[in-house]
Simulated scan of single mutants.
Amino acid sequence: MSGRQRQVVLDRPGAYRIADTEPAEPGPGEVRVRVFAAGICGSDRELYDGTRHADYVRYPVVPGHEWSGTVEAVGDGVDPALAGRRTVGEGFRNCQVCERCRRGDTSLCGGGYDETGFTRPGAFADTLVLPARLLHPLGPDADLRAAALLEPAAVVASAALTARALPGERVAVVGAGTLGLLAVQFLAASSPAELLVVDPRLGRAEEALAFGATEVRSPDALGALTGRYDLVVETAGAPRSAVDSVALARRGGRAVLTGLPEPGCAGLDPIGLAMNQLTVHSVFGAPSAAWSYAVRAFSSGLLDPAPLITHEFTLEEYADAIALVGSGDPGVGKVLLRP
């Protein structure tokens, strides 16, 4: 054992406590990670508010699915050399044996939904235990503060791999939140002829110019840009962002939807999809291949998540951090908890 540890326990929506417990010992095939930082995203706010679908949460829960840290203990059957390694790790506890897992679509595991921070104890704690097979070790000098954003980066990497952007294409990103700004970095690496970012928060969208965007616009100022883009990546999850994304795509173009809107959002027109021969993909989470891609991009310096971080809080300030996420303040980017 390594002494006592703190963890945020959300007993039910809106009711949490900071628990003082013994750190869990890693079982066979598992590791215990000392958490350095954990990101807070909209789904963590949904957990707190009680708006996440009941099939995708199990209260009481220790939230936290975006994290970075250092391996401090290994269980039986795990390479002892992992101890002391800086690392990030996948959240989906995929079964490895179903058809989807065997095809590499580990985020679509047919064994049932099971994810760190939602159905298993997460990283809003001093330590986290998970299967060693889910780790993606980092270099000895990796920036663990920035690495806490590699989970959303892996989602964006999944979208980028699906999109297959080609040099010289006209590309648009709808949404300038964490996912959107990470998407800009990935897509800029493909040398697009144009890279538009669409967001009603123009100040936020303009941050994308430093990452390779060529133009920013509000959704209500798209005008003649409708039907212009070879590829559109949607990251906002706003009520009309999927519709706006498809409208931006040229005839025969492609759209990749990554945002998760609330029920009742505007739906896509099937006639328009058919007549314009559009290809529409959706992304849920990130398979292992996308994680590997994101980690390589980060390790090589192609991906720089650090500028997206705007606020950091302690575990004891969890309620303040959650209130900030989803507050609508345009000055709020990625919020971290630092155990």
Rank of each mutant, 00 (worst) to 15 (best):
V174N: 03
V88K: 02
T21E: 05
P26Y: 01
A286S: 14
Y229N: 02
F92A: 13
A323Y: 03
A132V: 15
V156M: 13
E262R: 13
E46P: 11
S218D: 06
F118V: 04
V9W: 02
G104E: 01
V198W: 03
R52F: 03
T127Y: 15
R34L: 12
Y56M: 12
T70V: 15
D244C: 08
A306R: 14
L144N: 03
V232T: 03
D55Q: 14
A193C: 12
T258K: 01
G27H: 10
Q185R: 09
T226Q: 14
T116M: 13
L222P: 06
L135R: 04
D269F: 05
T70G: 11
R204Y: 00
T258M: 06
A81L: 14
G64W: 04
L10W: 00
G203Y: 04
C265W: 09
G252P: 07
T314K: 15
L260Q: 06
G328N: 04
G42S: 09
L10N: 00
A146I: 06
E72P: 04
E317S: 13
D79F: 14
A205E: 02
Q277C: 11
D329K: 05
L225Q: 06
C101M: 07
A73I: 08
V184A: 04
A238V: 06
V57G: 04
R133S: 14
G203K: 03
D105P: 11
A172C: 12
D230P: 00
L130E: 01
S299W: 09
V171L: 13
Q96G: 08
R120D: 01
R250M: 08
G301F: 14
D49A: 15
A148E: 01
P26A: 04
R217W: 01
L202I: 15
P60S: 11
S191Q: 03
G39Y: 04
E30F: 13
V61R: 00
D199G: 10
D143Y: 07
L308Y: 09
P339W: 11
I271N: 14
A221N: 09
A247P: 06
D76N: 15
A205T: 07
C101K: 02
R251I: 09
L182T: 02
V74P: 14
L179A: 04
G333R: 06
Y293V: 05
V232E: 00
D49E: 12
L231H: 02
A157Q: 02
S300Y: 12
A153L: 09
G264C: 12
F118M: 13
P26C: 04
P80L: 07
